[in-house]
């Protein structure tokens, strides 16, 4: 077995499964969004913020945010391990990526529940 400590779930199987589950969540979220926009051609601010004031939509959106964070982490981690052969460079890139994902996630939660 190849050991690793920086992958998302420390296991290829859990990463693989997470990648697929998160992809399904994101697909459903995307389909929902596209459909919502199509059915509301004259969308205004109040309808839009009304949607996001509902708890189920906030949970749904949070799920999508977490999914995109996990999906990005697993995918970008793979890319760094494929192409960045210098350990220093790779760990640096991985740190930047995880930091960015963390910032976006917290910012997203703040937007959803803030104000």
């Amino acid at each position: 077995m190849v050991t690793n400590i920086t992958s998302f779930g420390r296991s290829g199987l859990s990463d693989w499964l997470m990648q697929r589950v998160s992809a399904v969540v994101l697909a459903v979220y995307t389909v929902f969004m596209v459909a919502y926009l199509l059915f509301n051609p004259d969308l205004d601010y109040y309808t839009w913020s009304g949607l996001f004031n509902q708890t189920w939509m906030r949970i749904f959106s949070l799920l999508a945010f977490i999914s995109i964070a996990a999906h990005a982490w697993i995918g970008l981690w793979t890319v760094t391990t494929d192409y960045l052969k210098s350990t220093r460079l790779r760990v640096g890139a991985q740190t930047l990526i995880i930091l960015a994902i963390f910032v976006y996630l917290v910012w997203g939660i703040q937007i959803l529940w803030g104000a």
Binding site: M1, S11, G12, W16
Partner: peptide, 12 residues
């Protein structure tokens, strides 16, 4: 199977 479940061996 245990030997293969890491992120590289099979999942790459």
């Amino acid at each position: 199977l245990t030997d293969l479940e890491d992120p590289f061996s099979v999942f790459r």
